[in-house]
């Protein structure tokens, strides 16, 4: 598995896409800090970017990579290598290189602008952690879609739909339920509903760490009571881990049975 991971990783490096993302995040980080010297404000803006872009890039890149390296995968399948190793290796190669681009690309400008002297460091690390999680989650989901769809167009369609659903439609439905059932106590419901969407979960996790959480009022207080404690933090991180592990597990399971 290690070898395949290494191969995928360097393959991506050679294809320069990792660099492109790295430079994109680097430029973004510098630009944000240049326009707005306040670290904690930049963290908020960064959050908006991460929540939208990271899942999108993870999904698109994951599915592209899988379809693109299909011939190589078939070649590997002919060799005496465990199937789980092949797919896990490829998956990790993509996810790790994307996360590295993200962490380094955003990390370097913030460190240069004095992150270590600032008290925004915890918010920022949380931001990077959730960003990395989102990369792992959405790459895994993309791999799952690609594995289940031989047809590339269909696969791409589903992948984009997945992102659209998680980033936009889910919140729309969420909003609709909240408005329709406003007569009922909804704080527990919304707490649980966020668990079903890693993007929402990351957003709220970061929001609650920032000053802006005071705007959330009563609902925010319920959330803060939950996420503010160590139990809440670990539960939500646990849910993010679950969001990563389940698709990966399905990836392994399906790849074992699949007839190529």
């Amino acid at each position: 598995m290690g070898k395949i991971l290494k191969y995928s990783f360097f393959d991506l490096m050679r294809s320069r896409w990792s660099y492109v993302y790295f430079i994109f995040y680097l430029a973004l980080g510098f630009m944000l800090l240049f326009l707005n010297n306040d670290l904690s404000k930049a963290v908020i803006t960064m959050m908006n970017v991460i929540i939208v872009l990271v899942p999108l890039i993870g999904t698109i890149f994951g599915i592209m990579y899988y379809y693109n390296s299909r011939e190589f995968t078939e070649l590997l399948l002919a060799q005496p290598i465990k199937r789980s190793n092949i797919f896990l290796g490829q998956y990790l190669g993509v996810a790790v290189s994307l996360s590295l681009s993200l962490v380094l690309g955003l990390g370097i400008p913030f460190v240069l602008y004095g992150l270590f002297q600032s008290n925004a460091i915890w918010d920022f690390s949380l931001l990077l952690i959730t960003g990395a999680f989102l990369t792992f989650i959405f790459t895994a989901l993309a791999f799952n879609i690609a594995l289940s769809n031989e047809n590339k167009i269909k696969g791409f369609g589903y992948a984009v739909l997945l992102w659209l659903f998680m980033a936009v439609i889910f919140d729309g439905l969420f909003l609709l339920t909240l408005v329709m059932f406003e007569q009922y106590p909804l704080d527990k419901f919304s707490l649980i509903a966020t668990m079903f969407n890693p993007i929402d979960l990351s957003r709220i996790l970061i929001l609650l760490k920032l000053d802006i959480s005071a705007l959330l009022g009563y609902t925010g207080a319920v959330f803060k009571q939950f996420f503010g404690t160590n139990l809440g933090l670990f539960t939500s991180l646990g849910v993010l881990v679950l969001w990563t592990v389940l698709p990966v597990w399905r990836l392994v399971w399906v790849s074992k049975k699949k007839d190529f």
Binding site: I51, A167, V168, L175, L178, E182, D187, L207, Y218, T219
Partner: peptide, 20 residues
């Protein structure tokens, strides 16, 4: 306007859907 009607929806603060 929505938050005014249903305060719980504030939880969607800064989500892409709301911006849209």
């Amino acid at each position: 306007y929505i938050v005014n009607k249903t305060p719980e929806t504030i939880i969607l603060l800064r989500s892409l859907f709301m911006d849209l």
